[in-house]
Each structure stands twice: as C-alpha cells, then as structure tokens.
C-alpha cells in the first residue's frame, strides 16, 4: 500500500499554487491529507503532480470580518476545535467538529480539505450547508464565490474547475441567543456518520421558532437543506409538532448501499432530525429564559 510516483510541488504562496494548478496536467492539491493520502496509498488516486498546500501560511486563519466569520481553507480541524471565535459565534460548528475523526486526524485535517473531498457523511459540509456558507474559489483566471448549495454538486463532486482552489469560507453567525445542535449516528466514535442532522433555531419572545436551519448529512449524496421543514417549524413552540416536522426527512432521496439501505437512512434521518430540533430548541429556550 504505497503511492504511485508523482512530482511533488511545495509552493509557498497561493499565487504559486494557482500557477502550478493551472499549468500541470493531472494535478491534485494536497491539504491535510487525511482523505487524499489513504487514496494515494491505496492507489485509488494517481495524480502526476501533487501540489502540497501545507507551506502556504496565508490559507490558515479564523477571523471575524464585520458580521461574518471567515475561515481559511487550510485551517486545521484542531484549530477550529480550540477557536474561541468558533465556540462563541458558531456553536453548531463547534459541536460538529468534536465529532470529526480523532484527535490525531483533526491535528492535520483541514476545513477546506473536508469540503473539497465532500464525503456525503462528513460533518463539515453539513455545517456549511446549514450556514449557507459562501466559498471563495480562486484560480489564475480570478476569483469567484459560490454558495455551499451550489458548490456541492453531487456525490463527492464539487463545482471546482480543474484549475480552481477553495481558499476561504464565509459564514454569517446567527443571533447569539440561537440554539444549535449537531447530532449524528456513527457505529463508533470518530467514524464517518451513517447520518447526521444539524439544527439552528432562533426564538421570538414568546418562545416560538422565528428562524430555523435544518440540514441532513450522510443521507443523500450531498448535504440536504430541508427548506420545507424549516418553514413548517416557524411559529412552533415547545415540542408541538417537532416530530411531524422531522417527518420531512423521510421524503428525501436517500443513498442506498449494502451496509445501510435507503429506508434505514431515511429512518435515521427522521430520528436524528427530531433529536437535533429538540436539542436546538431547548438550548435556545434556555438562553431566552436566562435572558
């Protein structure tokens, strides 16, 4: 289990990396390596050119810009885990990151790498979908932004052109009083989830849902934002009808494989969504009561 030969490039700047990506045939960029390196070792991927991004310091950061939080694509999952900004402003991301892999893989794994790999069960794409994150894609030709919903085109397929790189992700934090919850079912701690559900909820003064974001991971080929369910949740209070809202998860076009057939994934989706809504609501309500 050893990689096939490749030419290794180790650029120090983003500009150099984009130049390489533009000029080399069959090139791939290497971020944290927690998904690509196994594929190289197993020879499931055999690029002729490998462009290592780990020396480009400018791509690793978490900063607040106006009413947004911006995360550099090469930010390590560990740095998200320990970030005060993430903990205070993006509680959904903080809860999700603790369920990503293991300490040893979070030390290397990056946010951008996870989004570009786009495993249907991965946590970070689901979080980005929940936030309607805006992704900055750069190439030698220039830069463009895409929403997460358009970035995730299909099963492990993104909107990236061959010469493009994801460089940063922008998220707009919700009102500090919102409640968030990321719930997943995995066979073992740290495994890719069989399915996951992300919920963010804001309440009005009468504790009715005034804003909601509901997303499923691992159920369909890409993270699934449940806009209908969100609308159905608006105006609800306590646990009235939460279970019914969760039934929206049963209507999705679920993945089917020998280990986890689609009926099971849908079932799981309904259960996890109900739990995520319930938890997010309680958290929001607890804050409201405290306030």
């Amino acid at each position: 289990m050893k990689p096939a030969p490749f030419v290794l490039h180790r650029p120090r700047t983003l500009a150099d990396a984009l130049e390489l990506l533009d000029s080399r045939e069959n090139a791939r960029v290497l971020a944290g390596g927690q998904s690509l390196m196994p594929m190289l070792n197993m020879r499931l991927a055999s690029p002729d050119h490998l462009i290592d991004l780990n020396r480009i310091d400018e791509l690793g950061f978490i900063r607040e810009e106006g009413d947004e939080v911006v995360v550099g694509a090469m930010t390590r999952q560990r740095d998200v885990e320990y970030s005060d900004v993430v903990a205070s402003r993006l509680p959904l991301m903080r809860e999700a990151i603790l369920q990503v892999g293991h300490r040893q893989t979070r030390n290397r794994g990056t946010i951008g790498g996870s989004l570009c790999h786009l495993d249907p069960s991965a946590e970070m794409p689901t979080v980005m979908m929940a936030f309607d994150a805006v992704l900055l894609l750069q190439s030698r030709r220039g830069a463009r932004t895409v929403e997460m919903g358009s970035f995730a085109e299909g099963m492990m397929t993104t909107a990236l052109q061959p010469d493009e790189m994801l460089t940063q992700i922008r998220m707009r934090p919700w009102d500090p009083a919102h409640g968030a919850s990321f719930v997943e079912f995995a066979r073992r701690h740290g495994d890719f989830a069989v399915a996951s559900a992300a919920a963010m909820i804001e309440l009005d003064p009468s504790l009715r849902v005034s804003r909601a974001s509901l997303t499923l991971g691992g159920v369909a080929a890409t993270p699934l934002r449940l806009r209908d369910a969100e609308r159905a949740l608006i105006g609800r209070r306590g646990d009235e009808g939460f279970t019914k809202v969760a039934q929206y998860a049963d209507e999705c076009d679920a993945l089917d494989d020998p280990a986890f057939p689609s009926w099971y994934r849908r079932r799981l989706a309904v259960t996890l969504l109900a739990r995520a809504i319930d938890r997010a609501y309680r958290r929001a309500a607890a804050r409201a009561v405290k306030a």
Binding site: M1, K2, L8, R10, L30, G33, Q34, M37, P38, N41, M42, D52, N54, R78, H102, R103, Q104, T105, N107, R108
Partner: peptide, 27 residues
Amino acid sequence: CEHGVCGACTVLVDGRTARSCLMLAAQ
C-alpha cells in the same frame, strides 16, 4: 494499516500527533 485508521504509526509533528502514514516525508 497505511490508511490512517489504526494509529500504530502516530508520531508528534511540532508537538501534535499525526499519522505518519498520511504524511509525506517531504512535508
């Protein structure tokens, strides 16, 4: 395992654990 699951190859890189089967020597 050489695919980043078993952890037998774990070393510290700048004080942080890393799977050394998932890093290139050059890195």
